[in-house]
C-alpha cells in the first residue's frame, strides 16, 4: 500500500507546513468579516449651525 510508505516524509512535511503558513494563512487573514445587517436605521446626526465670531 503506497499511501503508507513514508518515503519523502521530510519534504512532504516541509511543503505542507510552508503551504499552510505562507499561502493559506495570509489568504485567510485578508478576509475581513462585515457586520451582520441590522434593521435599525443608522443614527442621523444633525449638527447645529453656529456663527463665526469674526463675521
Amino acid at each position: 500500500m503506497p499511501q503508507l510508505n513514508p518515503a519523502p516524509w521530510f519534504s512532504i512535511m516541509v511543503m505542507t507546513w510552508l503551504t499552510l503558513a505562507l499561502l493559506i494563512q495570509p489568504k485567510l487573514l485578508t478576509f475581513t468579516t462585515t457586520n451582520p445587517p441590522s434593521k435599525k436605521p443608522s443614527l442621523i446626526t444633525k449638527p447645529t449651525p453656529w456663527a463665526w465670531p469674526w463675521t
Binding site: Q3, L4, N5, P6, A7, P8, W9, I12, M13, T16, W17
Partner: peptide, 10 residues
Amino acid sequence: PTTQLSMNMA
C-alpha cells in the same frame, strides 16, 4: 495528498 500517511502525521 491527504491519503498519504506521511502528510497527515506531519
